[in-house]
Design a protein around this nucleic acid. Structure first.
Lengths: 157, 157
DNA sequence: TCATTTTGCTTTAGGCCTAAAGCAAAATGA
DNA sequence: TCATTTTGCTTTAGGCCTAAAGCAAAATGA
């Protein structure tokens, strides 16, 4: 009852663009898995918490929940719960926005800043270790390639 | 109290390998977001369920839960719950493994196969649409680049 | 002014995901 | 043979994540 030949192509990995996407996703998944484990084992924290801290570190004056949510590409509700945990741990500070009574400005506390630096250093070390044998010029090539993909995906940043 | 100059580098986006990784993760996140929404809106399903179905489609004779979990890079417990849902929907069949009483062989039902084909076709269309303006040679280049990254990440496939 | 709409955020229900504990079958080895 | 260990899977607790509902403040506009 086959339609054309004895063996149909999987039709999945067949097309180049599909292979590109599948491979991209797989790289992200493998890398995330390693990072999650490292953050958990060595610092008892998570990648999403690190992401929030990294975003706040870039804005010493703090950010609203909404801006945080847009920067990280996650929902408002999600930011609410991650920030709450960081707050419980004393790593972030939440101050009412003088301009807008609905909003609060979140920023890293000194302790948060201190911890972030340690996390960021380890994070960089882990990543650098993965690419240690790749020539810088090749890395830049890959960065450019992903820049192109990001543009095609319509990143709004 | 700065150590070297008036303005320290963010040290984040600074190094090429970190930019590579951040960009990779961001591409994956943006793309996943779009796919998740498409699967939800148009087929009332999810990317993880599609992934399981795709893996089963590739193995017409079925796979054990363990193999499924390794193929998808997720935990056993996670596969248990996703397969249970597909089973509830009548999309997969679970048969005791004659060789091993602890294990069961999961496979797509006819209905599962039928639905998968529709999902796969739409999935391919969405991806192809993203890369429609990219010359095939360029796509292959990007595929190769990600193949290199995947190897560096130590993919066991 | 002030009713209506919009906006920023939180809560809730529910799916995805993991690590760890637990269970039963299979494998091991004395 | 049979106690012990290993293996395949499920369950549980708990974090991440979203969409949708809900709330209150801000913005709008007649």
């Amino acid at each position: 009852m086959e339609e054309r030949s004895a063996r149909e192509e999987p039709a999945g990995a067949g097309s180049p663009e599909l292979r590109l996407w599948v491979r991209l996703l797989r790289c992200a998944k493998i890398g995330e898995k390693q990072l999650r484990r490292n953050f958990e084992d060595q610092f008892d924290t998570t990648l999403p918490r690190f992401d929030v801290m990294a975003a706040l570190h870039r804005e010493p004056d703090g950010m609203s929940m909404g801006r945080l949510s847009k920067a990280l590409l996650v929902s408002n509700g999600n930011v609410t719960s991650i920030v709450r945990q960081l707050h419980t741990q004393g790593l972030v500070l939440s101050q009412p926005d003088p301009q807008d009574g609905r909003s609060a400005i979140v920023s890293l506390t000194e302790e948060g800043e201190r911890q972030f630096k340690q996390l960021a250093e380890a994070h960089h070390r882990w990543i650098a270790d993965i690419f240690r044998d790749v020539p810088p010029a090749r890395i830049d090539q890959l960065v450019d390639g992903l820049g192109e993909v990001r543009r095609l995906l319509g990143d709004k940043t």
